[in-house]
Amino acid sequence: MGFHTYDVDRADALEDESRYRHLSAEELLAALRPHPEMTVADLGSGTGFYTDDVAPHVGHLYAVDVQEAMHDIYREKGLPETVETVVADVASLPFGDDDLDAAFSTMTYHEFASAESLAELARVLRPGGCVVVVDWSKTGDGADGPPTDERYGVSDAASSLEDAGFAVDRAESRLETFLCIASV
């Protein structure tokens, strides 16, 4: 992934419910439109905070993270039945072409934002599949999240997704974050 990975020693902060002020479970579910036959990937799943919100609504959910230690913490917390952990970088996903119905990234886009990663994501999503990205905005004040020089703006993310062959269905800025929903 890009500039850094999240410090495993601070993993307990990933379970802080105040994270919902940036993206509620309801908003994530509305964007993904999950159903029991879906196969989904959480890109940069960490300890599974948002993974747990999606897991009851889909048939299979891959919790993708580059740090096995994050998966260890998630397993200690208890994996939902529909979740399978995968250690991988988004630029090299271990899925076949068109394997996923959807993918989502919550506050991790800045860690994998590259043409290679987005091309890989387009490869593994089925035609009509969607990706939901919520991340720290470069226009935020930087009180939470990574340093502002490691962030992207909504227009940066939307342009990169379009360059990778996605159609951006929704792109909006927020106080500290941005949201992009795109489909292949």
Score class of each variant (00 low, 15 high):
V154D: 11
G128A: 04
E176F: 11
H4R: 10
P147I: 01
H4F: 06
V40T: 02
A103G: 10
L23A: 03
A182E: 13
T177V: 14
A167R: 03
D99N: 01
R174H: 09
R21G: 00
S105L: 06
R174S: 02
A164V: 01
R126C: 12
V168D: 01
Y109R: 11
W136I: 05
L125I: 12
S117P: 01
S114L: 09
D52E: 15
P56E: 08
A122S: 15
S159V: 06
L14C: 12
T177R: 10
V184T: 15
E116H: 12
L125D: 01
G96Y: 00
S155N: 11
H57G: 11
L28P: 02
R33E: 15
I181P: 00
E37P: 06
A115S: 14
A55W: 02
K77Y: 04
E150S: 12
V154S: 11
G2W: 06
V131K: 15
D101T: 05
P80W: 09
G142H: 06
S18E: 15
G128H: 07
V64Q: 05
L29N: 09
M70R: 07
G48Q: 04
V8T: 15
G145F: 04
G59K: 10
E27P: 09
Y152D: 15
L175K: 12
E17V: 14
A69H: 11
T47V: 14
P147W: 04
V132C: 06
A55K: 06
V184M: 02
R10D: 09
S18C: 00
G78V: 10
L32K: 08
A171C: 03
R123C: 07
R123N: 13
E116R: 15
P146Y: 03
P146S: 05
S160D: 09
V66S: 11
H110K: 01
D163E: 14
M1C: 02
L179S: 13
F95W: 07
E76H: 06
M107R: 01
I73Y: 08
D9C: 03
D169E: 12
G145K: 03
Y50P: 07
T106Q: 08
R21E: 15
E37L: 09
T82D: 00
V54N: 05
G48P: 12
G96P: 04
S183L: 02
I73H: 07
V132H: 13
M38S: 13
A63M: 05
D144I: 04
D53E: 13
L32M: 10
F3P: 01
L175W: 01
P127I: 14
D9L: 12
V87G: 12
T82L: 00
G145V: 02
R19I: 06
Q67R: 03
V66E: 05
E84Y: 09
R170G: 06
S173W: 04
R174M: 01
E116L: 08
P147L: 08
S117H: 08
E120F: 05
P127Q: 04
